[in-house]
């Protein structure tokens, strides 16, 4: 999808070092390096990818949802007369094909897009696929940092970190992080934000 990010394919691949270590040497020297040049401005990609296992997690999740939807159609179809059965099985087949196609394509796409970074004074994420979203929340405005692990995430050893601000619409989520890395990240962000004064509004 036109991503031409440079380098750092190893970032976020495992639990090597804490998020803090990595974010420190990724922090940019100053604001607006490119503002004086000619050319088109864009947001650079955040430094770290999510964990490679996230692809398998997303894939499993799509397959489970698609399988549940197909089952809802197929199971009652067995009880229907033959003429009606056809009209239930056709959408079931369409759903199955779409589900498999999504399970093959979407996780790869998401993996390419989903990135995150903790700079010196902000949390920066990029998420989405058809609709991509870049979000920045300054440290001084962060209110809570949560990590959450659903049943499927626990199987894959992953966690989702959610950073909320005082805005009802300002939450950042970083899905598919390694469990230990997520714990470190929550710890680091909590300490940083507690050290920052103000009521974050």
């Amino acid at each position: 999808m036109g991503d031409s990010e440079s380098g750092d394919a190893d970032a976020g691949r495992g639990g090597t070092g804490t998020a803090h270590d990595r974010s420190q040497h990724r922090t940019e020297p100053g604001r607006g390096d490119g503002r004086d040049d000619t050319g088109v401005l864009r947001l650079r990609p955040p430094a770290h990818r999510v964990h490679r296992k996230a692809v398998a997690w997303w894939r499993t999740r799509i397959l489970l949802v698609a399988a549940a939807a197909v089952a809802v159609l197929v199971v009652p179809a067995a009880l229907l007369p033959d003429a009606a059965r056809f009209w239930v099985l056709v959408p079931a087949a369409v759903l199955a094909v779409a589900g498999v196609a999504a399970a093959v394509g979407m996780p790869m796409w998401w993996y390419r897009v989903h990135r995150w970074e903790v700079t010196g004074d902000a949390v920066y994420t990029r998420t989405g696929a058809l609709w991509q979203e870049w979000r920045v929340a300054p440290m001084s405005r962060i209110q809570t940092v949560d990590s959450e692990r659903g049943p499927l995430e626990q199987v894959f050893g992953l966690a989702t970190v959610t950073v909320t601000t005082a805005s009802a619409k300002g939450a950042l989520t970083i899905p598919g992080l390694d469990r230990d890395l997520a714990a470190d990240l929550v710890h680091e962000l909590t300490e940083t934000t507690q050290a920052t004064p103000g009521d974050a509004t």
């Binding site: 922090t27 100053g30 607006g32 390096d33 864009r42 947001l43 650079r44 870049w134 300054p138």
Partner: peptide
């Protein structure tokens, strides 16, 4: 200071 450090040409 929010988007600033993250912009590139």
């Amino acid at each position: 200071g929010l988007f600033g450090p993250l912009l590139e040409r």
